[in-house]
Design a protein around this nucleic acid. Structure first.
Length: 543
RNA sequence: GGCCUUGUGGUCAAGCGGUUAAGACGGCGCCCUCUCACGGCGCAAUCCCGGGUUCGAUUCCCGGCAAGGUCACCA
């Protein structure tokens, strides 16, 4: 068969010499151990936690080694394209402090671009043509129906499905048959003529999983689709070679196609990059666990975390603890250190599927939020409120002094008793509510109406905004005693039957009356921030 | 179903021939306390199963089993 002529017929035209690509995309001039890694999403615009996983791993490995992280867009499938997706990806990752050195919409060094695969059609075709000329690729005219029938037959016979060996019908087409099909105008794809033997096993070193066994590929996979665009597999080989990727960190769903990629790199004469296949995030569902899915699990969307108001650092810390098993220990010892100082390694990445644990994330969030100063907290909340808060919440930020006071108090900022009972911006805003809005709902008073009335009246009678905390509390005790409550906790505990309750119960009544809530930080301080008029008004309203 | 990967408390996990089998989250209890919270102390809970190898296996080997992934002109 005249492969040269066939190649010309299939992909007519003059393509640059193959070697010219090697000079056009020269080896990168980087320090010896520098890694070049990439993120290669399809432009659906939806980035989820799984993407963030891979993104953080790739980013850490590249930047810790003094290398490059780039963004490539895998837009070979038109169905996946969504407008503005690339910008959305960049923005979402930026929120977590992940910055690309080069790539789509990034700017920087353009040497290795373009970064949209659709714009790289010429390179792919040049190499496909080359493979045809060498007899390593051939046209296939099988229709979708034929292919799915083949699959059904193979399944019925319990054979391995796919286009391979004796089932690779078009592989055996004669020169004459090929040209007949071509003359008839039949659409075709280009398939790799596989030389592998699936019986032959090799051990392959995966940077994350360690040594694994892979079988040789024998599938005549499609490398160029009928629209002239390559499949993922082929684009991966060409792009990662010419973009000079050194380490491919990707999800373990790709492990199964590793044999294909190994053969493709070999056929093209490219050295193989190193690979690390990371496990996926799972979710418990009944008895079993499954991969998190973007349709069913809102917590998979990065947008979920922004909207709830999780601090980006918290999400990042959580992912880092899942990603590198020794990170948590390091972080416990170095709570203030920049995350960049942690020695992230692919080898320490988890090998098995990890269950996503919202409780753990919450715990980390609490601790991260507890590290913020009052000013940082204000900025964080303000940014959140501007996008997701109610109008009333946005108004909290107009009275700077009161806000800082309320914040400092109800979060215990600066004190040794810092509160950690809120995990997100939206919860933090809730904590602030009674400072700025009169309570609309009241938790139930646990005393009789007449008792409540007496207590509130008693309090109002002695209340003076000039009192310091001790005086204030002494007065509360007096009111308690006057109404049959134990002024001292010890007395109450020693003889509970002698009293209606303790001073704690009295404090609760006052607390509910002024804030609507049974549980708040120090009541005296709250009243102090609210001011006399407001305190009196709120309590009077409860009489 | 074939192939690949993975199996240590409820979760994330350290350990990888001899350990009282770390730690964190969660749960429970106690202390502190005007409530909540914070903090402190403590408790319960784990080596998938069966065979080997070995003086000794969570650790090594074999075989099961289970879970996950994958078998497209999608990535």
């Amino acid at each position: 068969m005249n492969y040269k002529a066939l190649a010309e017929r299939l992909l007519p035209g003059q393509y640059p010499a193959l070697e010219s690509y090697e000079t056009r995309y020269p080896l990168r001039n980087l320090p010896e151990k520098a890694e070049v890694t990439r993120l290669a999403p399809s432009p659906t615009g939806f980035i989820h936690l799984g993407n963030l996983f891979a993104a953080i791993a790739n980013e850490r490995i590249a930047h810790r080694s003094g290398g490059i992280l780039y963004l490539r867009i895998e837009d070979t499938d038109l169905k996946r394209k969504v407008d503005g997706a690339v910008e959305a990806v960049i923005k979402a990752l930026e929120y977590f402090d992940i910055r690309f050195d080069e790539g789509a919409e990034i700017g920087g060094d353009e040497t290795y671009g373009p970064w949209y695969q659709r714009q790289r059609a010429e390179i792919y075709r040049a190499f496909v043509k080359h493979l045809i000329e060498e007899g390593r690729a051939y046209p296939c005219f099988c229709t979708e129906e034929e292919l799915s029938r083949l699959r059904e037959e193979q399944t019925a016979r319990k054979e391995v499905t796919g286009y391979y060996g004796k089932y690779a019908k078009c592989r055996g087409l004669s020169e004459e048959e090929i040209y007949q099909n071509l003359d008839a105008g039949k659409p075709f794809v280009i398939r790799l003529k596989s030389m592998g033997d699936p019986e032959v096993k090799h051990t392959f070193h995966d940077e994350i999983k360690g040594d694994i066994t892979v079988h040789e590929n024998d599938q005549d996979v499609v490398i160029l689709k009928s629209d002239g665009i390559p499949t993922y597999h082929f684009a991966h080989a060409v792009d990662d070679h010419f973009m000079r990727t050194t380490l491919v960190i990707r999800g373990e769903e790709w492990l199964a196609s590793l044999p294909i990629h190994i053969e493709l790199f070999g056929a093209l004469g490219f050295p193989l990059p190193r690979y690390g296949h990371n496990c996926s995030l799972m979710k418990q569902e009944g008895e079993t666990r499954r991969k998190l899915s973007k349709r069913k699990d809102p917590e998979l969307s990065l947008e979920f975390y922004r909207k709830e108001g999780y601090h980006p650092r918290a999400v990042k810390v959580y992912i880092l603890t899942l990603l590198n098993s020794n990170f948590e220990e390091w972080y416990l010892k170095n709570p203030e250190a920049p995350l960049e100082e942690f020695k992230f390694t692919a080898a320490k990445m988890s090998k098995s599927g990890t269950l996503f644990d919202l409780d753990k994330l919450s715990d980390i969030s609490k601790n991260e939020l507890a590290k913020l100063s009052a000013g940082q907290m204000r900025d964080f909340l303000k940014t959140w409120a501007e996008e997701f808060g109610s109008e009333a919440q946005k108004a909290y930020f107009s009275d700077e002094e009161k806000l800082l006071g309320a914040l400092t108090l109800c979060m215990g900022i600066g004190g040794k008793k810092r509160r950690k009972d809120f995990t997100t911006a939206s919860q933090a805003m809730e904590l602030l509510r009674y400072f700025f809005e009169r309570p609309a709902e009241f938790e139930p008073y646990r005393v009789e109406e007449t008792v409540k009335h007496a207590l509130l009246v008693g309090f109002l009678k002695t209340y003076s905004p000039a009192d310091d905390a001790q005086t204030w509390f002494a007065k509360v005790k007096e009111v308690a005693a006057e109404n049959g409550f134990a002024a001292e906790m010890k007395d109450y505990k020693a003889n509970p039957d002698a009293y209606r309750g303790s001073v704690a119960d009295v404090a609760e009544v006052l607390r509910i009356a002024t804030t609507g809530k049974a549980n708040t930080p120090d009541l005296w301080t709250i009243q102090h921030i609210l001011g006399e008029a407001e305190v009196r008004a709120r309590i009077a309203a409860q009489l």
